[in-house]
Design a protein around this nucleic acid. Structure first.
Lengths: 114, 114
DNA sequence: AAGTCTTGACAATGGGACTGTCAGGTTTCT
DNA sequence: AGAAACCTGACAGTCCCATTGTCAAGACTT
C-alpha cells in the first residue's frame, strides 16, 4: 500500500559514497573533502556510513559546476552557498542561466531532464 | 564658486597606478591583472594613463578582502560582482558583516568612516 | 571471509594568485 | 632636455589550492 513515489523523497539518504561518486563521476576522496570543508553534509547510518540523498547529490553537482566550469574555488563555493541561504533566493539557478547562455549548455545540475 | 565637496566625487579618476597600489598595498602588476580580468576598469587619460577613482579603489579593496581574507579566487570574485549587479543588492556588505563577526573586524572596505 | 565502508596521513600533478623583472616605447614633471 | 613614471607584453618564481590516488588499521555488511 505504499506508493513508490513516497520513497522518492529527495531528502531520503540512499546513496553510499561509492555510488554517489559514480553518479557524480568523481573520486570518493573528493566527496569526503567536500564534507570536511562543510560544503555537503550526507546523512549517516547508525553505524557511521555516509548516505547521500538526491539533494546532496544535486548540491555536489553545483559544486562541480562552479569549480570545473566556472573556475570558482571551494572558498567561493562556500560564500555562494552562504549567500543563497542568507538571501533565501535561488541565486545559483539564476547564475547558471547566465553562464549557460555563454558557453556550456550541456547538462544542468539542478533542472535536469535527462 | 566651486565647492571643494564637488571635487570629492567618488567617481572622479584621480589616482595614478602607483598611488593606487600604495593605498592598496599591492603591486602595480596586480592591479593590471585585475583589469585584464575585467574586475576593475579604471579611467584613462587622453594619453592612456590609468586613473583610479575612489570607487575603483574601494572595488579593489573588496577584491583584496575576498581573496586575502576569505580565500576566494578571482573567478569567485567575478561571480560575486556579477551577482551583485544582477540582483541590484549590496550582497557584499551583507557578506562582510557576516565574515567580520567571525574573525577580522579591522577596516571595512565599503562602509569606511576613516 | 570478501568487499566496502571509516578516518588519517602522505604525495603527486596541475593550475591560480601574486610578486617581480626586463624590454621598448610614450608621457609627465622639473 | 633629462629623469621619473607610465604603457604593453613576456617570462619566471613562489606559494597555495583542487583533485586524484594510495596506504594502513579498523569497523560494517552480506
Amino acid at each position: 500500500m505504499t506508493f513508490q513515489g513516497a520513497d522518492r523523497d529527495p531528502e531520503r539518504p540512499v546513496y553510499v559514497i561509492s555510488v554517489a561518486a559514480g553518479i557524480l563521476s568523481c573520486h570518493p576522496r573528493t566527496l569526503r573533502i567536500y564534507e570536511e570543508e562543510g560544503l555537503v553534509c550526507p546523512a549517516r547510518t547508525p553505524t557511521n556510513i555516509r548516505l547521500y540523498s538526491e539533494n546532496d547529490v544535486r548540491r555536489v553537482m553545483w559544486i562541480r559546476h562552479l569549480t570545473q566550469n566556472l573556475g570558482v574555488n571551494l572558498a567561493g563555493v562556500r560564500i555562494l552557498f552562504e549567500l543563497e541561504e542568507r538571501l533565501g533566493t535561488r541565486i545559483l539557478e539564476r547564475l547558471y542561466s547566465e553562464a549557460s547562455s555563454d558557453a556550456d549548455a550541456e547538462r544542468a545540475p539542478a533542472t535536469v531532464a535527462k
